Amino acid sequence: MRNTVFRKLMADEFGQVRSEVLASEHVLSALGGRTPDQALDVGLPAKEIWLAVCDAFDVPEHRR
């Protein structure tokens, strides 16, 4: 998954503004205590980050 796809999925699920705030400020233990943006910066795969966000926010399987 590309970063652009990750950003689109985030915006589609949470709305543009909320997705930006979540990506920059919400720390996830599944990402090693990083925010999604920090995880992207250190090279974690976007798909792994997306699935961690989905788990944290109970996104239904059919929208993952």
Score class of each variant (00 low, 15 high):
3 N>F: 15
4 T>V: 11
5 V>H: 06
6 F>V: 05
6 F>G: 14
7 R>T: 10
7 R>C: 07
9 L>Q: 07
9 L>I: 14
11 A>D: 11
12 D>E: 03
12 D>G: 03
12 D>W: 01
13 E>V: 11
13 E>H: 11
13 E>R: 15
14 F>M: 05
16 Q>Y: 13
17 V>Q: 12
17 V>F: 10
19 S>I: 02
21 V>G: 10
21 V>K: 13
22 L>S: 15
25 E>T: 06
26 H>D: 07
27 V>Y: 05
27 V>L: 10
28 L>M: 10
30 A>I: 11
30 A>P: 05
30 A>K: 10
30 A>V: 07
30 A>E: 05
32 G>R: 01
32 G>T: 08
32 G>F: 08
33 G>D: 06
35 T>C: 11
35 T>V: 06
35 T>P: 04
36 P>A: 06
36 P>M: 06
37 D>L: 07
38 Q>Y: 03
39 A>L: 00
40 L>N: 08
41 D>H: 09
41 D>L: 13
41 D>G: 07
41 D>E: 15
42 V>L: 10
43 G>K: 01
44 L>N: 05
44 L>C: 14
46 A>L: 10
46 A>Q: 07
46 A>Y: 06
48 E>C: 05
48 E>M: 01
49 I>V: 03
49 I>Q: 00
51 L>Y: 01
53 V>L: 03
53 V>N: 00
55 D>Y: 15
55 D>R: 12
56 A>C: 09
60 P>N: 05
62 H>W: 09
63 R>A: 07
63 R>H: 11
64 R>M: 07
